[in-house]
Design a protein around this nucleic acid. Sequence first.
DNA 1: CTGTTAGCGCATTCAG
DNA 2: CTGAATGCGCTAACAG
Lengths: 330, 330
Amino acid sequence: MTIYDIAKEAGVAASTVSRVINNKPGIKAETRKKVQDLLKKYNYTPDAAARGLVMQSTKLVGILIVDIRVTHHINSAFLIEKELTARGYCCITMSTGPEDEKKAMYIRILEQRRVEGVILMGSMFMTDKVKESIQNHLPKVPVVMVNGYLDLPNVSGIIVDEDHGIEQCVDLLFRKNKRKIAFALDSVSPSNYKKQEGYCCGMRKNKAPKEDLWLYELEESSVKGGYDVTQKIIREHPDVEGIIYSIDLVAVGGIRAAYDMGYPVPDRLGMIGVDNSIYGEICMPKLTSLDNRLQALSESAASILREGLEGKIQNKKMMLFSEVIEREST
Amino acid sequence: MTIYDIAKEAGVAASTVSRVINNKPGIKAETRKKVQDLLKKYNYTPDAAARGLVMQSTKLVGILIVDIRVTHHINSAFLIEKELTARGYCCITMSTGPEDEKKAMYIRILEQRRVEGVILMGSMFMTDKVKESIQNHLPKVPVVMVNGYLDLPNVSGIIVDEDHGIEQCVDLLFRKNKRKIAFALDSVSPSNYKKQEGYCCGMRKNKAPKEDLWLYELEESSVKGGYDVTQKIIREHPDVEGIIYSIDLVAVGGIRAAYDMGYPVPDRLGMIGVDNSIYGEICMPKLTSLDNRLQALSESAASILREGLEGKIQNKKMMLFSEVIEREST
DNA sequence: CTGTTAGCGCATTCAG
DNA sequence: CTGAATGCGCTAACAG
């Protein structure tokens, strides 16, 4: 079913049908009615691709996420999608995986689809390869990176001061008289690197001796990973008094490990995660967590992209401030 | 940049460029090379929409989810997307919200985009309005419903015997000598209705007196909702010995409520959730849960849709069997 | 081996 | 107020 089919049956030209569909003025009420009836009769809907071709506008935006199963990221995507869908855009949300080549591949897919805007979700997209791909394949569409930045004329970024936030976490533990603090990283990413910096800064600021900076990297970013690393930390440093984890998901594994090893939380061991996620409300005791402002981050990203879609392409750089949410684990 | 631009610079016709792009045979190696160099020079990628128009194939599939933030559903979408992307399809994943009108609206959006297949995620799509929309707007594309079914020639469905699974949960509690069992529903959906049926069946089968069938509906499908309803259950039935929840997310709220009210789990109170999700591994004690076979469900959905995309449109109906995973809460 | 032509479904001039 | 003609970017059938 095309506008021609409708036109033929209505005894008018295709252009008339097109005008009716798009509510253009200058159509006799009677003709309009006749066409509209036919449109309804056949449940006709115009082909977005064909329209996009002639209008030079696909109304498509791409949202790239390393892994959509990561609660934190999909929650953000949800908010962004809601905002953009309300404005008539259709979002293509895809999981790229962590490999640079695949990220580049997905950028190409978005190019083929001629998206008019792109969201890059998370600092994992802060790589040279991604930068090069954007430069080569999407040099003119507005791109917004959530919690990261790429120095390109069409890319904007919003970042959270997670380094400073983690520093506050260290401060909090010190205030609770916990001075032997370990830090567990779930993966290597610019965001996690910043958190690690914050940990080191905070420890230095609180005059912790250098040999007491205990950095741990997880085998896997999961509850089990958190469980295992925590056992390891406790075994290697039985005098540990606090652990900060790069994300809540692994922190909750740590909470359980502490319990199983007979380290009461928070009395003997203070624990802090990052994301202020639902995981922290489920475990026992409830987890103190660094709120990295997911909602505000997403809303800003959506609104910056929206501006870009409206033609104001500019590489904005914004920062939001994280905040420690204290619960039962400290 | 179009194939014409490339063609002009290469001194060949557009069709030749098209042939090179699509690796068609019968091109002089020299010409091919010349064109390929230009393609690379300009980072040219064909416009998927224009190609789709002439090929009569968009290579687009739609995935509709009531709320992509629901872990269970997004995990399933992830698996399906992976499979379909690998086969050259591009997935449009969208949150419809629970309202029927919005579901219908999103079906129209998919129609406009001329998707070649659709996944309906979750039993929440088993409504007359959705059925009517599919019938009117997407009567010819293969549709696969995950954990549900619509009686339409182009719709397939895979369902899980959650009713029977919940019955087994009741059996398990009875074996543990818990006979006063409540059931908490997080929302009204066909899937939850089936679970409720299973609860009633199980109770009847185990000869529980009719007045001991305690059904509760939650205010909100959240940890807090589970917490509140559990307090209510305990207050209204201090002799309660077991609670089954329609999903893990609310069950973990219940676990905490039981703790706060001094009801040791599992000694005094056995608790069971549904989904076998990560939530159940985070709480303490760890949650016994009904595994509703998410992975198998998703894989089947993807493979049925794939068959549909390959032309074998048929309304298959499949069933998978759930399984109780016992942990610490029973 | 390559160029010419036509047409996918639509919106938009420009005539009438 | 409406119709005919054109072109968006691409592929395919047909010539040559």
